Amino acid sequence: MTFCPDDLQPKHFLWDFADGVATITLNRPERKNPLTFESYDELRATFWNLDNCRQVKAIVITGAGGNFCSGGDVHEIIGPLTKMDEAGLLRFTRMTGDLVRAMRACPQPIIAAVEGVCAGAGAIIAMSSDLRLASPEAKAAFLFTRVGLSGADMGACAILPRLIGHGRAAELLFTGRSMTADEGFAWGFWNRLTPNVLADAQALARDLAKGPNIAHAVTKKQLDAEWHVSIETAIEMEARAQAHCMQTKDFKRAYEAFAAKQKPEFKGD
């Protein structure tokens, strides 16, 4: 399947593409942008398909109306889940996990631009992004325990401790309490706090889009792959990955620009 930015006409979120940057906006502001079965599925498909769209070089995901995402819609998801059998529930939990897999597998860097409420599946989407910018008023909560569920949801028990440490992750996942913006920044969950969160996220995305895109994709892949291997194996994996990058035209362009005392213009090849 060939996928291009102009092909996408989503039903469950807004889509904008400019300067190599795709912006996904969750757009149910009257309810703080909750997810539904359909929006989960559409987001999952979009991130999988981005693997085939090299015009998109970086992605920003945000929410409309001053909030990021309040998680799964209480009436459209949680209510129906209470009536499903085990097979139906497993299809749902695998689908939600697939959204995280798709985000991690797509080669483009993903930046979450977070304001206001960032809860449940919304916190997972932020967690699963490569970089996270937040407003000073943002609050993130992995509140699954508040609805009688475990914190083991969509990879949270694997990914969150790697971002903020085991003890801090355990506290958030056991209690479901909100993590303040200052806490999240101090703990390394947020890369940056800014009152101009969307504008700054898009500016950062444009900077990344101008960079060596093949190399960025390799960095993203290795950041995930090296969780599971020894240091010795990781060093060998990085040797092979870097040797691959050294064969790109972008690497040659960078050298020639440096030699000419100019700024390199990367083209992603």
Rank of each mutant, 00 (worst) to 15 (best):
R91P: 00
L90F: 09
T46W: 07
L90S: 13
E86V: 11
R91E: 01
C53V: 02
L43C: 07
L89Q: 14
R54A: 14
G79P: 03
W48N: 10
S70G: 03
V74D: 14
F47A: 02
D73M: 07
G65W: 03
F47E: 00
N52W: 08
C69F: 03
G65H: 05
D85F: 03
V60F: 10
F68V: 00
G72M: 12
L81I: 13
L90P: 00
L50Q: 07
K83W: 05
G79M: 09
V56N: 09
L43V: 04
V56W: 13
A64L: 07
R91Y: 01
A87M: 11
D41G: 08
E42Y: 05
Y40S: 04
E86M: 15
A87K: 13
H75P: 00
D41T: 06
N67V: 03
D73Q: 04
G71N: 01
N67A: 03
I78Q: 12
A58Y: 13
D85E: 10
L81T: 11
I78G: 10
D51H: 14
F68R: 02
G65I: 05
C69V: 01
G79D: 09
Q55S: 15
I59F: 12
C69K: 00
N49H: 10
I78N: 12
L90A: 14
K57N: 11
L81E: 12
I59Q: 10
E76P: 02
I77V: 15
S70Q: 08
I77A: 06
V74I: 13
F92M: 07
H75Q: 12
G71E: 03
T82H: 14
G71L: 01
T46Q: 04
G66H: 03
P80H: 07
R54K: 14
E42N: 06
L90I: 08
N49I: 02
N49K: 10
E76R: 15
D51Y: 05
H75V: 10
G66F: 03
M84R: 14
R54S: 13
L43D: 01
W48D: 13
H75Y: 10
G63I: 06
